[in-house]
Design a protein around this nucleic acid. Structure first.
Lengths: 225, 225
DNA sequence: GGACCGCGTCAGGATCCTGTGAGGGCCATC
DNA sequence: GATGGCCCTCACAGGATCCTGACGCGGTCC
């Protein structure tokens, strides 16, 4: 099922999009402001984002930039502004399409189809099983040797970022930025703490981790092999 | 160089696009009707197609369909028709974007950039390979004969600088400046030490290096051949 | 032939980083 | 008001990394 995240602060537009998208068989989640949109993009892992630029809390270009910091999900911008400069800014910030309000629902849906057609080949859920652990990213569930393990929100968030980048070294700064957001880039004590928690809960031998490996001076790496 | 095929039967639009695209560093080829457009798409292998729908010989949707029969090159449609049904038809036929005339040149160029950005993605930063070694710069990972080799931050940094300048002589001062930063330009003992570490970890015969060569009195050179 | 210079190598200690435990603040629930 | 869960800060021991200096070796220049 294709998952679409719709971000808009106008309830009637949100409602119209939700109904139309659901009728076409999309799974729809919504957000009404920038922060919850970023949050939802992380937890829901949508296949496509429809983003209204006139959000109450964050500037539209900033939302795009912060999304683009870690995901390449297609972004379709909705906006009431027809000014050419706004379009250029949004597209250059990383948006894939720009639709001005009022828009025809048929056209918007056709644009979404075109976008998904191009983006939508791979969609492999990243490896979610390693050792005795199996992780269901969609359901927010972790099983170790068949037993369910409870993770706190922060632990989960950190695990998610690592799992979505298998084999890849994630720098301290990058992880702190992804999980704690801007302003915590130097709180490395935090990162050590939660990495230790994760290892205690998921690794067979937390003192000698096999999957969540430390790269001294650089960061951490999730190695599923 | 990025190659753009522009298809339009109006000479002034053709001319305007050619000038603007060429000014941005694109390589432009043009066609004035559907048949020659299809021909040009085959012979020129463009990275992007800008297609006017009002062609004299073929229907726009048919041009798209015949292109899509064998290529996935991004197609941006230009059209004077604002009818929603036309947009839906073109997009569902396989177009990636639809811009109505009159259009702002800035906006069109931004849309082309967005399109190329996405299309160009799959060519992810490749793993540099030489001898038995393969280096994945994005994942920060080094394999020698299939075995993972751990590098310290400084070793990695030095390797990165060398790999990003293949075949080029890197002076002592330049390397020290890049890796250690200002203030260490004269610490050549350092450089010798870490170059030795790199060779020990990556070269088949560290005493007779094949890839990380010394240029006496000058510096070092990474030679991938 | 001898002095000199640049390069590779080795071992030492200083420095930084990491894992771990304990403890306090905050919030929601009871 | 008390409890428990979660998050953050601090301190410290052990380990990894980094820098420094000293030593041979081979080539170059006088």
């Amino acid at each position: 099922m294709t998952r679409v995240l719709v971000v808009d602060d106008e309830p009637q537009i949100l409602r119209a999009l939700r109904i139309n998208l659901a009728a076409r068989g999309y799974e729809v989640t919504t957000a009404a402001d920038g922060e919850s949109a970023l949050q939802a993009a992380r937890t829901e892992a949508p296949d496509l984002v429809v983003l209204d630029l006139g959000l109450p809390d964050l500037d539209g270009a900033e939302v795009i930039a912060r999304l683009r910091g870690w995901t390449t999900v297609p972004i379709v911008v909705l906006s009431g502004r027809t000014d050419s400069a706004d379009k250029v800014d949004a597209l250059d910030a990383g948006a894939d399409d720009y639709v001005t309000k009022p828009f025809g629902m048929d056209e918007l849906l056709a644009r979404l189809r075109a976008m998904l057609r191009r983006a939508g080949e791979p969609e492999e859920e990243p490896a979610v099983a390693f050792g005795d652990v199996s992780v269901d990213l969609a359901a927010t569930r972790v099983l170790v040797r068949g037993e369910e393990v409870r993770l706190t929100p922060t632990e989960w968030h950190l695990l998610e970022v690592l799992l979505r980048n298998p084999g890849r070294l994630m720098g301290h700064r990058q992880l702190l930025l992804e999980v704690w957001g801007p302003g915590y880039e130097t709180a490395q004590g935090n990162l050590r703490l939660y990495m230790a928690q994760l290892r205690r809960k998921l690794e067979a031998d937390p003192a000698r981790p096999a999957y969540f490996r430390t790269e001294p001076g650089m960061g951490y790496r999730f190695d599923p092999s």
